[in-house]
Simulated assay, not measured.
Amino acid sequence: MLTLSYLYSVSNNLRLTLDKCSQRDPSVITLLFALSFEWGKAGSDNRIHSLFERALADDKLQKSVLLWRCYLAYEAEIVCNSSAARRVFFRAIHACPWSKRLWLDGFQKLGSVLTLKELSDLQEVMRDKELNIRTDIYEILLEEETNT
């Protein structure tokens, strides 16, 4: 349906259909379809941002680690907006503090944005939540500096 609508019909029809589906029964799958449709279109940054925000405002989807990881990757790697990625990361770990992968994504994508003090504090919080990592964050940062 996505491919056919993209090639042969007006894109607003598909957007309306996906919006109705997501309002009726919010799901990660519906959002991923909507995002995959928007990803290929030029000038759809505001629409993608709006889709993420609407989905994560829903109580049912707010605890979805996958959505938070996608949103963080979008802001950090595609839009390259480090301040927005930082805000998304802190919102994500507040909504899903149990997800070790989400914490590690933040370290990897925001290592150059966060200060050493912030990274150290985040590592302390991870340790308090028993989300242990194998190496010290300072070792990771030193390794990155020597590789560059």
Rank of each mutant, 00 (worst) to 15 (best):
L2F: 03
L4T: 12
S5W: 06
S5A: 06
Y6P: 01
Y6G: 04
Y6F: 07
L7P: 03
L7C: 05
Y8S: 03
Y8A: 05
S9F: 12
V10P: 14
V10Y: 14
L16C: 09
L16F: 08
L18P: 00
D19T: 10
D19Q: 13
K20I: 06
K20Y: 12
C21L: 12
Q23D: 14
I29L: 14
L31S: 04
L31I: 12
L31F: 11
L31N: 10
L32V: 04
L32H: 12
F33A: 11
F33W: 14
F33H: 13
F33M: 11
A34P: 07
A34I: 08
A34N: 10
L35C: 00
F37Q: 00
E38R: 03
K41L: 01
A42V: 05
D45T: 03
D45L: 05
D45S: 02
N46Q: 07
N46A: 05
S50L: 12
F52R: 02
E53W: 08
A55G: 05
D58S: 15
D59P: 15
K60W: 02
V65T: 06
L66A: 06
L66C: 07
L67F: 06
W68R: 01
W68D: 00
L72W: 01
E75M: 02
A76Y: 07
E77W: 13
E77I: 06
I78R: 14
I78Y: 13
V79D: 07
V79P: 04
V79G: 07
V79W: 11
V79H: 10
N81V: 01
N81L: 01
A84K: 05
R86P: 01
R86N: 02
R87P: 04
F89I: 00
F90V: 03
F90I: 05
F90G: 03
I93D: 04
H94L: 10
C96W: 09
C96A: 06
P97G: 08
W98M: 15
W98Y: 15
W98I: 13
R101I: 04
L102F: 00
L102Y: 00
L104H: 09
G106L: 01
G111S: 09
G111R: 13
G111N: 10
S112E: 12
S112Q: 08
V113W: 05
L114P: 02
L114G: 03
T115C: 07
L116K: 11
E118C: 09
L119G: 09
L119C: 10
S120Y: 09
L122A: 12
L122T: 12
Q123K: 11
V125M: 08
D128Q: 08
K129P: 00
E130C: 04
N132Q: 09
I133S: 05
T135N: 13
D136E: 11
D136G: 09
D136S: 13
I137W: 09
I137G: 09
L141T: 15
L142P: 13
E143H: 15
E143Y: 14
E145P: 07
T146L: 15
T146W: 15
